[in-house]
Design a protein around this nucleic acid. Structure first.
Lengths: 222, 222
DNA sequence: ATAAAAACCATAGAATTTATATGGTTTTTC
DNA sequence: GAAAAACCATATAAATTCTATGGTTTTTAT
């Protein structure tokens, strides 16, 4: 019987073990699943590279949050996705995220364009099996909460440039406007002016930053 | 038992009858379906308005192509969707389209933001039932081919302004560049220049219009 | 094959948009 | 209630995009 090879990456071993038990015990039509697991960015890249030299993985299940080594640059699941696309372009990539947070989904959809996106609270035996079948035969597979975020994004044509997105991001993490000049190559009045425009764009003219944050969140930008 | 009221609009009566037979005979948990049908834009608006005065429809199934009366302005399913959102805001709207064509999906997602989108070749008893349940409980519901188009759009951050979209649209329907000045409020060199920029944006520099059309289609703009 | 049409390109200058510098007022925060 | 931050306004600078114009190359039709 044909073998489908899947690599699951998550720093919680229980999670990857769960995937392994469920999928290796499942009855698929015409194939059996063989799972490998990895617990860190480094281990994952090694395995993906190694496999790509011979038979690449059919599916990569990537957790978005990966704990990082104390030294070295912090690497996210998104980075891993970008890496995997490059070295193993035929592998299907599925993100397993704890959050259905809009900002992250948008960013991953653009940086990696994965074949699947599952929100962890929605993962169970049935959805895992459906995901494997769909991703192999006719991607994409998104769970319901991911779809809600995607729909939100699709429903509007507002597209912000990098500076606008940075401003919203920094607002959302509490950076003071006057400090943003350190991260964004604009003058302070430039940033203030863009904030004004964003407020107007989102229909919260003459209101404070909290209103802008709420509006951006509702519209799926952060 | 609770009754869920659905209006199906399609100028092919066989289609709406099919929906009716399937859904009225289905066993749903906790409710029964009662279907009305309409064959034209006019009939549909009347029924929706009428219902909205009392108990609005729970779900509206709208065909995108509606044949039009010989006189009067041509009305599409999209127009009907916009109308329905206004007069019956609590109704869930689901589009039933013959095509999975990107341009149309994008446009409908922005103009109406429907709770569901089904490509007709993918509709069967099971998907209809799933659609009703999903749309009522946790929208959205999109069939696989709709998802493919949506994914394509999400995967890129390129957003074109109205003029760019008009240029691409007119290119796709064969309008000559020199004639576009009649439809687009730009000078001819202006249009030419935007075409150049679009080609560069889509990675088909120094190529002809056909290449631009193909690229835009691949990226889901037309 | 060739004439006509359309597409394509380049550039100077006009118009528009967006940024900055500066200095002020209002709102928040402690 | 004082200090900090946010907010606003305006003049000027910079950057972008448009138009007008005139040309070259490619496509189309006979």
């Amino acid at each position: 019987m044909k073998k489908v090879r899947i690599l699951a990456v998550d720093d919680h071993e229980m999670t990857t073990l769960g995937y392994k038990f469920i999928l290796e015990d499942s009855d698929f039509e015409g194939f059996k699943v063989q799972m490998d697991t990895a617990k860190s960015y480094e281990e994952a890249t090694k395995r993906i590279e190694e496999a790509a030299k011979g038979i690449p993985y059919d599916i990569l299940l990537l957790d978005i949050q990966l704990s990082n080594p104390t030294d070295g640059p912090a690497k996210t699941g998104e980075d891993l996705g970008v890496f995997a696309r490059k070295v193993s372009p035929d592998s299907k990539i599925v993100f397993m995220s704890s959050f259905s947070d809009n900002y992250r989904i948008n960013s991953i959809m653009q940086a990696v364009d994965p074949e699947g996106y599952m929100v962890k609270t929605e993962i169970d035996q049935k959805s895992l099996q459906a995901m494997v079948n769909t991703v192999l035969n006719s991607p994409p597979y998104y769970t319901q909460k991911a779809l809600v975020a995607i729909r939100k994004k699709m429903a509007q044509d507002i597209s912000l440039d990098e500076n606008d997105k940075k401003i919203l991001y920094h607002l959302s993490i509490g950076t003071k406007t006057k400090d943003m000049v350190k991260f964004i190559s604009l003058s302070l009045p430039g940033i203030e002016n863009r904030k004004r425009q964003l407020k107007s764009l989102f229909g919260v003219e003459k209101q404070n930053d909290q209103a802008l944050i709420t509006a951006s969140r509702n519209r799926g930008f952060i």
